[in-house]
Design a binder for these strands. Structure first.
Length: 599
RNA sequence: GGCGAGGUAGCUCAACGGUGGAGCAGGGGACUCAUAAGCCCUUGGUUGUGGGUUCAAGUCCCACCCUCGCCA
C-alpha cells in the first residue's frame, strides 16, 4: 500500500546564495528521503520555494539600487540552477510571491481570525520620516538604557544581554542609514498562541518518541518552561502579502507567519499546474499522510510549535474559506532538523565569504562527490565541520576506493572476459558462499531502509558502504582472477554473484548518489531510469510571472533486490568517480575569506 | 542574561548505569581483477574540568569552562 509522503524543505531567503551548510542542512536530506520513498513506490511530494518577502530583501534591494522584485528573482533563478545541477528533485520549487500563495496565506489568516485566535494591539515603533517606513527592531540601534553601552539593538543589548523594550532605547538610529527616527503608534494583529498552547504541547508529546533530542528540547522543553506567548503576525511593510482586512492597507503579513504557509500553498499550486485541483488533499487533508520538514536548528521553533499552532488554529475553517469544502489540515509527522555545518573550524559567513557556495563548488566538483561528503558529514546530532582535506580523503578513500573501484573492477573484468555480457550462469547453481553474500547484501534493503525511514541518513549511507565492503571481501576470497585460469565456470559464478550484489547496492546508494548510480544502471544495460527528470516552467498569474522547478517521475518500485538476468548485454563500463588531487586543498583554502569571484 | 543542544582516539562518529567501539588516517603483511584501488593484521583514549551518588558513571546529580542555536 503506497504511502503519502510530503517532503517539506525550508524556504531559502531571497537575499543570499545557497552554501554547503544550507544544502546539508535541509535540501540534501530532504532529497535523499524523497528519492528513497519514490524508489519504494510511495507517493512523494517534495516542495519548497524562495521566501521572497520581508525586510532583509527590501534592504538588499535598496543596497543594490534595484527593484525588490528583480532582486528576489535573481536569487530565485540561482537557486533553480543549483538544484538542477545538484539533483535536488523538487516536485515544485516556487516562490512566496504568487497569487496562489497570497490567497492561501490570507485564508489561513482569516480562518485563525474567525476561530478567535487573533487580536489587535497598538504599540509604538521606530519610524523613519525620510524613508517613510517603520523599521524592524533589529535594524534600530542606539544606547542601552540599562547598561549604557552603545551599539545595542533596540530589542536586545549584546553588551549586558538584557532584552530591551524598543521604545526606551537612547539615541536611536537606523542601521540602514534611514536618518533620524521617531516613535509612532502602529497597530498589529497578534496570534494568541497562549490559547493554542495545550494543543501544541499535546502535538509535541505525541511525537516525542521519534523527534530528535535537539528538536524536542528546543520546542516542548521551552514551552513547558516558558509557555507560548502571543506574537505579532503583521508588519508595516509594502512588500509582502496584504492583510486581508478592510482598513489595513499598507500592512503585510509578517514573514515568519506567512512563509511557512508555503508548505501548504506549494502543493496547491502543484495540483493546479497538473490540472488536478484536489490532488493536494492526499498530503494535506489526510491523517495518514506523513509530513517531514527538513530545516536547520535556527528554525526549529517555527516548525515544531508555531506552524502546528497555525494549522491547528485554522482548523476546519481553512477548508471552508479557501475552497468551500470540509476537512482538517494534516499536521507535521516529524521535523528532523539538522545542526549547523562549520567551515574549516569557523562559522560559515556569507558577508566574509567564509563559505563554500553551492553553484561555485559544482563548477569544480561532481554533484555526487559533494553529495557524498555532505551526507557522511551531515550535522544530524551536532555541528560538523567542512574540511577540504577531509573532503579529499573521504572522496578518495571511501567513495572512489570502496564503492567506485568495486563497481569498476567487477564490471571491467566481466566485460573483458565474457564479451560484454553478464555471465550466463544458472542462478540455481550458485554455491553457498555466493548465496551467503547475496543474502547479506539483500538484507540491506531492510537495514538501509530502516535507517532511511528514521531519517538517520549518515547511518544509512554508512550501512550501504559497509555492504560494499562485504562484496570486496567476497571477491578477495573467491579470487575470480585465479579461477578464470583453471575453471571459467567457477569464475563466472563469482562474477555473476558480485554483479548482482553491485546491482542491488546501486539501488540502495541511489538516493545518496543519484547521478553515478544512474550511470551504473546504464552500464548494466537497463532501459528504465532509476529516477525521473527535472525541468523548469514559467507560470503567469495576477502578480506577473514566476519560474518554477518541477520533477517528472517514473512509475516503478525499484527498492528491491536485483534480478539481473544471466546473459544480459552490458554497456562498456568506465570509472564512476574521480580521484581528487591533494593540491586542491591549499587552493580551496586560499579562496576562503577572499572577495567572491564574479558569477 | 534566560532557555536548549553538544564537548569521547589525529579526524568523523558509536556506546539500555555493567570490560570504552567503528570507519578514515598511521604501522606491518600476503595478493594483483580494479582509478597503486581491494583484502588480512595492528598502534592510538585520565570520555572538557572539579566534586558527588552507586558494588559499578562517557552515561545519573551539582558547580565551572568551551562551542553552537533560540529568545516566540
Amino acid at each position: 500500500m503506497p504511502e503519502d509522503i510530503l517532503v517539506a524543505i525550508a524556504w531559502p531567503y531571497a537575499n543570499a546564495e545557497i552554501h554547503v551548510g544550507n544544502i546539508t542542512g535541509s535540501h540534501l536530506p530532504g532529497d535523499i528521503v524523497a528519492r528513497y520513498h519514490r524508489l519504494k513506490g510511495n507517493r512523494v511530494l517534495m516542495v519548497s520555494g524562495t521566501d521572497s518577502h520581508g525586510t532583509p530583501v527590501t534592504l538588499k534591494a535598496d543596497a543594490l539600487g534595484k527593484p525588490v522584485e528583480a532582486v528576489y528573482k535573481e536569487y530565485h533563478a540561482g537557486f533553480l540552477e543549483l538544484f538542477r545541477q545538484l539533483g535536488i528533485t523538487y516536485d515544485l520549487f516556487t516562490t512566496t510571491h504568487t497569487e496562489n500563495h497570497f490567497k492561501v496565506a490570507q485564508s489561513v489568516f482569516l480562518a485563525l481570525k474567525e476561530n478567535g485566535f487573533l487580536f489587535t494591539q497598538k504599540s509604538m515603533q521606530w519610524y523613519s520620516p525620510a524613508a517613510k517606513r517603520f523599521l524592524p527592531d533589529r535594524y534600530v540601534e542606539g544606547t542601552c538604557y540599562i547598561c549604557g553601552a552603545d551599539g545595542a539593538r533596540s530589542d536586545q543589548c549584546d553588551a549586558c544581554g538584557n532584552v530591551l523594550e524598543p521604545e526606551k532605547l537612547i539615541n536611536p538610529r537606523a542601521r540602514t542609514g534611514d536618518g533620524a527616527l521617531e516613535l509612532r503608534e502602529t497597530e498589529h494583529y497578534y496570534l494568541d498562541l497562549s490559547k493554542l498552547e495545550p494543543e501544541v504541547k499535546e502535538f509535541l508529546r505525541q511525537r516525542a518518541g521519534r523527534m530528535r533530542e535537539t528538536v524536542l528540547g528546543e520546542s516542548l522543553g521551552k514551552i513547558e518552561a516558558e509557555g507560548l506567548k502571543p506574537r505579532p503576525i503583521t508588519r508595516d511593510l509594502d512588500w509582502g502579502i496584504p492583510v486581508p482586512v478592510e482598513g489595513w492597507e499598507g500592512k503585510c503579513l509578517y514573514v515568519w507567519f506567512e512563509a511557512v504557509i508555503g508548505y501548504l500553498s506549494a502543493p496547491i499550486e502543484w495540483s493546479r499546474l497538473n490540472g488536478q485541483e484536489k490532488a493536494w488533499h492526499a498530503w494535506w487533508v489526510n491523517p495518514a499522510a506523513r509530513q517531514f520538514y527538513f530545516i536547520g536548528k535556527d528554525n526549529i521553533f517555527f516548525h515544531t510549535s508555531l506552524w502546528p499552532a497555525e494549522l491547528m488554529g485554522a482548523g476546519e475553517q481553512f477548508m471552508k474559506i479557501f475552497a468551500g469544502e470540509t476537512g482538517r489540515l494534516t499536521v507535521p509527522y516529524d521535523v528532523p532538523a539538522n545542526q549547523f555545518m562549520n567551515l574549516e573550524g569557523q562559522k560559515i559567513s556569507g558577508s566574509r565569504n567564509w563559505a563554500v557556495w553551492g553553484r561555485d563548488a559544482l563548477r569544480r566538483y561532481d554533484p555526487d562527490a559533494l553529495r557524498y561528503y555532505l551526507t557522511v558529514n551531515m550535522p544530524e546530532l551536532r555541528d560538523t565541520d567542512w574540511d577540504w582535506a577531509d573532503f579529499v580523503a573521504r572522496n578518495n578513500n571511501e567513495l572512489v576506493a570502496t564503492w567506485g573501484n568495486l563497481a569498476n573492477r567487477v564490471l571491467s573484468f566481466c566485460y573483458k572476459h565474457w564479451e560484454g555480457q553478464v555471465p550466463a550462469v544458472d542462478p540455481e547453481a550458485l554455491r553457498p558462499a555466493d548465496r551467503d553474500l547475496l543474502a547479506v547484501i539483500e538484507a540491506g534493503f531492510d537495514s538501509v531502509g530502516r535507517e532511511l525511514e528514521a531519517v538517520h541518513l549518515r547511518a544509512a549511507l554508512q550501512e550501504a558502504m559497509r555492504l560494499a565492503s562485504e562484496v570486496n571481501k567476497y571477491l578477495d576470497a573467491a579470487a575470480p582472477w585465479f579461477q578464470i585460469k583453471t575453471d571459467k565456470d567457477e569464475a563466472a559464478r563469482s562474477i555473476y554473484t558480485a554483479l548482482r550484489a553491485i546491482d542491488s547496492l546501486k539501488v540502495m546508494l541511489a538516493p545518496f548518489l543519484p547521478f553515478t548510480c544512474q550511470r551504473l544502471h546504464e552500464f548494466f544495460g537497463y532501459e528504465q531510469p532509476l529516477f525521473g527528470e527535472q525541468y523548469t516552467e514559467t507560470v503567469r498569474d495576477a502578480l506577473g510571472e514566476h519560474t518554477v522547478l518541477r520533477y517528472r517521475g517514473v512509475e516503478a518500485v525499484q527498492w528491491r533486490p536485483s534480478e539481473l538476468p544471466p546473459g544480459a548485454k552490458l554497456n562498456p563500463p568506465a570509472p564512476l568517480y574521480k580521484k581528487l588531487d591533494e593540491s586542491l586543498i591549499t587552493e580551496e583554502r586560499a579562496r576562503l575569506g577572499k572577495e567572491p569571484q564574479a558569477n
